[in-house]
Simulated assay, not measured.
Amino acid sequence: MENPSIEAAKGPWSVPVTVAEVPDTGRHVELVPDEATRDAIAQEAGLVALPRLVATFDLARRGADSLRLEGRVTATVIQNCVVTLEPIETEIDEPVELFFRPEPVGAAASGAEEGSHSFEGEEPPETLVNGTVDLGIIATEFLNLGIDPYPRKEGAVFDEPVARDPASHPFAALAALKKDPGSKGH
């Protein structure tokens, strides 16, 4: 049995794949979590509900120990509108493109890291932990990237409170003193 703290750190959806499980010809994976897992992901993400979540990935080996992952995470999420607090449904479609390579080992690897060539505009590679990527965690992370932090129902507008009598605001007395040139405050 795995350590419970490690299990909790994985999040509600874990689908580990090792580089060794990916054939030289590549591997296509389509993941659809069950209802209980979607509910746990929704709770963790602060959603009202997560009725649909699909992650499709194409995995390709790069050399003996590196991996390229391309795909999409699509979902239907239900959140509360920040203005009306009514539930609203939103569609998410996030592209995924990641490159993984083994974690550096020892001082020799850190020197190799510093000398490695990166091209402008490229994302740095992700680190494979024990030769494994967790597709469930990746899908959850990209889902979270696609969630609108301030969902607003179409047409919902936040109206500022209407100002009452200008003379009734807390600084009205100070404003009156400033306007009166004969006051003793000058």
Rank of each mutant, 00 (worst) to 15 (best):
M1C: 11
E2I: 14
E7S: 14
E7M: 11
E7I: 15
A8H: 14
A8I: 14
A9I: 07
P12L: 11
V15D: 00
P16C: 09
V17F: 13
V17I: 14
V19Y: 04
A20M: 02
T25F: 09
E30L: 09
L31V: 01
E35R: 14
E35I: 08
R38F: 03
A40E: 12
I41A: 06
Q43F: 08
E44I: 02
E44P: 00
A45S: 15
G46L: 08
L47I: 05
R52Q: 14
V54T: 14
A55R: 02
L59Q: 08
A60L: 10
R61H: 09
R62L: 08
D65H: 12
S66I: 12
R68T: 05
G71Q: 05
V73M: 05
Q79R: 13
Q79A: 03
Q79V: 05
Q79Y: 05
V82I: 15
T84S: 15
I88L: 14
E89W: 01
E91H: 08
E91T: 13
P95Q: 11
L98Q: 15
R101Q: 15
E103I: 00
P104T: 08
A109P: 01
G111N: 06
A112S: 12
E113I: 11
S116L: 13
S116K: 11
F119P: 00
E123L: 08
P124Y: 01
P125M: 00
P125K: 06
V129Q: 13
N130I: 02
N130D: 15
A139Q: 05
E141D: 15
L143D: 11
L145M: 12
L145D: 09
G146N: 04
I147W: 03
K153W: 01
G155F: 04
D159F: 06
D159L: 07
A167V: 12
P170M: 04
A173E: 15
A175F: 07
A175S: 07
A176Y: 01
L177E: 07
P181M: 09
K184V: 08
G185Y: 00
G185L: 14
